[in-house]
Structures are given as structure tokens and as C-alpha cells.
């Protein structure tokens, strides 16, 4: 008791039966509430979980390879910057090596990495045909990393890429079903991220940058291309999703 009385001037220290707790120390939140309660202090707010918070990734290997000049693409900085000039034919590329690398670049947000990754993935999916299916398992980690950044632009790009991926070749949609556990949790977090603008104009709709809408489109594409097991697996990870084919 004597010890407690001596330390009373220090506001940061509060008493608990039997011991003195310094609030600067990390204590579990429930215990902290209890301490404040006993000392008639205002109860603290619960800490922020940060589910929607953007997360940073370390440097991607795409950036490293690009700067080293390892990609068979010609680097151009002209005004019509919507195409990649490939130095070799895409048909002759090793998809097991290059496709995961380009997917890795989806995490990038700065020019030119973001453009080359997005356009490279687009070209390879458009012209890959049967070479895409065997690479699917190697694409999951880059996709998961990109979605986990929770960055608005990265999310939009990745969702559009996923929509393209499932229609890029036969059986790709089915091949993705076992990996829903890796891909869908982030979609479940952001599925309701939709702007309620009343009767105002939501320009993100026209630009296809509305994350909630993009997630719905992506899940529908997954269901259409994923075969008969797709719906139940989506529903397991995203409980609010309703089938676009059964109803």
C-alpha cells in the first residue's frame, strides 16, 4: 500500500489489486478496460484492426528483372503508350518463367512497372491458349500478394486480370477452384465497398474502378467458368454472394 501511495503523482500509473500497472506497458485490451474501469477513468477505444488499411509490399521481383533488362520487351516512351513491343514472339516464351513474373508486377503502383506488368499479363493471357493452364498454381501467390496490398488501384487491376484469366483458356476456371481459399478472403472484405452517392453521378462506374462492382463481376465470372463446384466454394468464402446461374 505504501508503495502505491508514493507513486500516485504519476498519472500514467494506476493501481490494480496487488500490483501497480504502468499504462505505457502493453497490456491486453480487455485487461486495460478493466484497469480503467476500476480507476473510474474513461474507457479506451478498442484498437483499430486495420482490415481495410493499405499494406506495403517489399520490392517485387518484377521490378528487379525489369531494371536488369531481363524481359523480352522493348522499352519505349512514346505518346501512344498502350502497347508492348515484344522482342520475341509470345508463342515462344516460357510461360512457366514469365507469366508468374508479370503477375508479380501487379503489386506495382508506379510507372512504368505498373503499365508493363498489366499490359504484359494482358498480352500473355490473350495469346497464351493452352500454355496458361499448367502455370495456374504458380500464379496464386502473386495474385494473393497483389490483393493483400488492399490498394485501390492494385485491387482494380488484379480483379480485371482475374476476369481475363478465367476466360483465357479452357479449364482455367475449374483449375482456380481449389485456390479460392487464397484468393477470395480479400474479396469478402471489400465486396461492400460501393459508393452510395444518392442521385449523384458515380464516375468510377464508367471507369470500371468501383471495387464492389468489380468483385461481383469477378465472382460471377468465377462461377460461370468454374464448373459445378464453383458456387458452393465461393459461397463458403464469401457468404453474401448469391448465385448468378441458379436463380
Amino acid at each position: 500500500m505504501m508503495k502505491t501511495r508514493q507513486q500516485q503523482p504519476c498519472l500514467k500509473k494506476v493501481k490494480q489489486p496487488g500490483k501497480v500497472v504502468d499504462l505505457r506497458e502493453r497490456v491486453p485490451f480487455t485487461q486495460e478496460v478493466e484497469i480503467f474501469d476500476r480507476n473510474n477513468l474513461k474507457k479506451p477505444e478498442p484498437p483499430v484492426a486495420g482490415a481495410f488499411k493499405e499494406r506495403t509490399t517489399g520490392g517485387t521481383s518484377f521490378k528487379k528483372f525489369y531494371e536488369r533488362g531481363d524481359f523480352p520487351i522493348a522499352l519505349e516512351h512514346d505518346t501512344k503508350g498502350n502497347k508492348i513491343a515484344w522482342k520475341v514472339e509470345i508463342e515462344k516464351l516460357d510461360y512457366h518463367h514469365y507469366l508468374p513474373l508479370f503477375f508479380d508486377g501487379l503489386c506495382e503502383t508506379s510507372h512504368p512497372y505498373e503499365f508493363f506488368a498489366r499490359q504484359g499479363v494482358h498480352d500473355m493471357l490473350e495469346h497464351g491458349g493452352s500454355k496458361i493452364l499448367p502455370v495456374i498454381p504458380q500464379l496464386i501467390i502473386p495474385i494473393k500478394n497483389a490483393l493483400n496490398t488492399r490498394n485501390h488501384k492494385v485491387l482494380c487491376t488484379t480483379l480485371k486480370v482475374l476476369q481475363h484469366l478465367v476466360v483465357s483458356a479452357d479449364m482455367v476456371g475449374e483449375a482456380l477452384v481449389p485456390y479460392y481459399r487464397q484468393i477470395l478472403p480479400v474479396m469478402n472484405i471489400f465486396i461492400n465497398k460501393n459508393l452510395n452517392s444518392g442521385d449523384g453521378i458515380d464516375y468510377s462506374q464508367q471507369k470500371r474502378e468501383n471495387v464492389g462492382d468489380l468483385i461481383h463481376e469477378t465472382l460471377e465470372a468465377f462461377e460461370r467458368c468454374g464448373g459445378e463446384d464453383a458456387f458452393i466454394n465461393i459461397k463458403y468464402m464469401v457468404p453474401t454472394y448469391e448465385s448468378c446461374m441458379l436463380n
Binding site: 522493348a74 508492348i84 513491343a85 515484344w86 522482342k87 520475341v88 514472339e89 498480352d123 490473350e126 495469346h127
Partner: peptide, 16 residues
Amino acid sequence: IKKLIRRDGCFYYYDR
């Protein structure tokens, strides 16, 4: 058009 070779030998790929 699906694929064209530019004058410098690089390839341009076009969408379907």
C-alpha cells in the same frame, strides 16, 4: 489482325 512485326523487328500483339 492478331500479330504484326514492326519495321524494327519487334512484335505487336492485338486483342481479339
